[in-house]
Amino acid sequence: MTKAVIVGAVRSPIGRRGGALSGLHPVDLTAQVLNGLAREVGIEPENIDDVVWGCVSQVHEQAGDIARTAVLAAGWPLSVTGVTVDRQCGSSQQAVHFAAAGLVAGHYDVVVAGGTESMSWVPMGSPMGDRDAFGPAFTERFGSVPFQGDGAELIARTWGFTRRQMDELGLRSHELAAAAQDRGDFDDQIVPITLPDGSVFAQDEGVRRGGSLEKMGAIAPAFGADGLIAAGNASQISDGAAALLMTTQEKAEELGLRPLAVVHTAALAGDDPIMMLTAPIPATEKALKRSGLSLSDIGTFEFNEAFAAPLLAWLQEIGADPALVNPQGGAIALGHPLGASGARLMTTMVHRMQADGTRYGLQTMCEGGGQSNATILERA
């Protein structure tokens, strides 16, 4: 049976909103990451059939099929196509699923999957503007759709999480990310980005050091005076891009490429679009059932820390060992560039599995509309 394998995984360093990457056009950011991937793997771009690319806010500088635009900006041959995917925060994880399916079906020999989001250039919510994006039939069924932060508030109150519990998770994220930076864990996965002024940006800039629960507890709630969600227990608004080169085992051997991981299982799940962020629970259950693996078989997890509350709910319902989840920090510390986050998590997980000799890793994330992707990788 044909299997889809990952032979390369890179990412940009993640920039804060208004930070180091805020002066670089998102197309040029994407092009640099694509070229960094080709250099890392040692493949000529002419061998790549397609670029499947996640991006949530596909307007303004990220409009016009940014995947194809970036391919051309990177100087790749005109024969290399690109398509842009939107499954909200899971867009680039979905890009991996689409790429894997295309490889197994024989539609591709070699494909890039990944994503980008420059939230400094195109703020969250820009595609909707002041228009009604949902329409009367949806509204009649569900009412008005809250912001994702309101969904996190609902989760916190439904599961009974305290502000302190969520702040503890946020502090852990920063401490683990800082330790990973200090060890050089991210060095091999990061493509240094040349900025318009000629300087080079090479380290995630959202990680905060020297934090404490007292400092976090002093941060004002973000969604109402009596709210539980605050900046210390929520992901950062960020800029970044990430990319994975994928092929089949047979093609990898033909091209002399070393597989890093096999896409073992891919699953999707939907849940309440108002609470919105709980679908990783059924997605994980579905992925485990489909894979034939048990929870104890999974040696590492990546769960996107859009907010602390959905991760805490997932931990409680799934029963995963917290020590195995986001052991190098998550989006609360590293940032959450929406369309890039799925590929960023997977890049980090692939490199960790290689370094630690972990056989199976599972990644999942909450997504707009009450959806979730879950992916199980097997180290090659």
Results as ranks from 00 to 15, higher is better:
58 Q>C: 13
99 A>H: 01
145 V>A: 11
380 A>I: 03
73 A>T: 04
93 Q>A: 15
309 A>D: 06
332 I>D: 04
87 R>K: 07
35 N>R: 14
277 L>Q: 07
171 L>K: 08
296 S>G: 15
105 A>Y: 00
130 D>I: 12
367 E>Y: 00
2 T>D: 12
205 E>W: 03
162 T>A: 13
215 K>Y: 04
364 T>E: 01
57 S>Y: 03
136 P>N: 08
254 E>D: 13
96 V>Q: 00
212 S>T: 13
175 E>H: 11
44 E>K: 00
12 S>G: 14
199 S>P: 08
315 L>A: 11
292 G>Q: 03
319 G>D: 06
123 P>I: 12
210 G>A: 11
139 T>W: 00
187 D>N: 07
102 G>Y: 02
287 A>R: 02
152 A>S: 12
280 P>L: 05
240 G>A: 04
120 S>Q: 15
130 D>S: 10
144 S>C: 01
194 T>Q: 14
44 E>P: 00
276 M>S: 12
12 S>I: 09
108 Y>N: 01
339 G>P: 14
190 I>M: 03
250 E>T: 15
196 P>Y: 12
87 R>S: 08
257 L>T: 05
98 F>Q: 04
364 T>A: 11
135 G>N: 02
32 Q>P: 06
278 T>G: 03
238 S>T: 06
304 N>S: 05
127 P>V: 11
54 G>Y: 07
240 G>S: 09
360 Y>G: 12
227 G>L: 05
175 E>R: 11
26 P>G: 08
302 E>L: 07
165 Q>P: 02
178 A>C: 04
216 M>V: 05
271 D>M: 09
232 G>W: 00
102 G>K: 08
276 M>K: 01
231 A>C: 10
335 G>I: 10
204 D>C: 11
146 P>D: 04
159 W>M: 15
168 E>S: 10
153 E>L: 02
111 V>I: 13
262 V>I: 10
240 G>P: 01
129 G>R: 10
269 A>V: 03
12 S>K: 09
105 A>S: 15
153 E>A: 04
227 G>R: 00
10 V>D: 10
301 F>T: 04
123 P>W: 03
24 L>V: 14
354 Q>A: 13
194 T>D: 02
49 D>N: 14
227 G>T: 04
354 Q>C: 06
160 G>D: 09
169 L>M: 14
319 G>E: 01
129 G>A: 15
63 A>G: 12
150 D>M: 13
290 R>H: 04
374 A>P: 08
153 E>K: 01
288 L>Q: 02
14 I>D: 00
